[in-house]
Design a protein around this nucleic acid. Structure first.
Lengths: 166, 166
DNA sequence: AATTTACGTCAGCCTTGTTGACTTTCCAAG
DNA sequence: CTTGGAAAGTCAACAAGGCTGACGTAAATT
């Protein structure tokens, strides 16, 4: 181990094999990560795209369509299809913007919040189990590496997502 | 810090907020993780599915179609479409099994290996940069948490993927 | 008044997943 | 040696969820 070089900035020796292991870990873990919500969604008319929309509307209530577009990194048309079905089914409410009436502020309805809870309960359960099994030091490292993997703009978005809505 | 409780088995206190941050980190990081290969693939007739097939054939040369099916977790028909185009284009060779002639052992051709290298170079570069920035302790934690997130069967697969082919 | 922005929508396309049905090949057990 | 069943391949049809391009409307901005 290279424990002596704490920062790991210069002398960290990384073989292709080590990196490949990391790549495959991402692949398999992401599959597991999405498996539980996918299971809940299948049978409903919804899919992973609906889950993502619901997640971020819950996360930042009142965010605009353009906000959500940027976060999800998809086209307006693609998001619209998803959003429309959620609005039609009464899971999401789109209120006309208070200051700028062109904007639509998105909120979950009670029904939407209910589905959100079911989905995120499942996903959190897995995450919690993994965190518990791995321990706090590992969790810190997990978050650090994931963050380091993001593009700067994405990382900024990820970090600033706390202020959120309206 | 909860350094005192090394294993983190029982006393680890995890708020929904912490877990949500982890969930979002996975979402954003995975996008970044696939962005580079996706960029290379766009323009060619290939997509992420081709990349995955190429990756695991490179990883375990000589693996059978059924092996690959299990690893990727898709249907035979779905994989076949991808595999056929790779074979037709001369990136993958499917040799009739030596002992069991029903089986096809899959190998990359020189041309296939070349694309594999381009794709994994890009992906490894990002992974390497993230690892370097995060440091060895974080990397260890990253791998530990990802592994803990997998289902037992998947984890077994992930770990035993070293023996691989033929 | 003209332009730009935010949003919605129609139409069409692609990739990648799915099911179901069917054939061929071929190993292995009866 | 025959036959049952596994492994593989293929056809057809479909769905989700990406994409582009074009167009319309309302509201804000210049």
């Amino acid at each position: 181990m290279v424990e002596s070089n704490q920062g790991g900035e210069s002398l960290l020796f990384l073989t292709d094999e080590q990196l490949r292991k990391g790549i495959e870990a991402m692949f398999f873990a992401y599959r597991a990560f999405t498996a539980d919500p996918d299971r809940i969604l299948e049978g409903m008319d919804y899919g992973r795209a609906h889950h993502r929309a619901i997640h971020f509307i819950h996360r930042a209530p009142g965010l605009t369509v353009t906000n959500l577009l940027t976060i999800l990194g998809v086209t307006k048309q693609s998001l619209n299809r998803v959003l429309r079905s959620l609005i039609d089914d009464g899971l999401v409410e789109a209120r006309v913007g208070r200051s700028d009436k062109r904007e639509r502020n998105l909120f979950l309805t009670a029904k939407g919040a209910e589905l959100e809870r079911a989905l995120s309960d499942a996903q959190r359960a897995r995450m919690r189990a993994a965190y518990r099994a791995a321990g706090p030091v590992a969790v810190q490292g997990f978050r650090t590496v994931l963050e380091a993997m993001m593009d700067p703009e994405m990382r900024r978005q990820y970090q600033s997502l706390r202020e959120g809505g309206v």
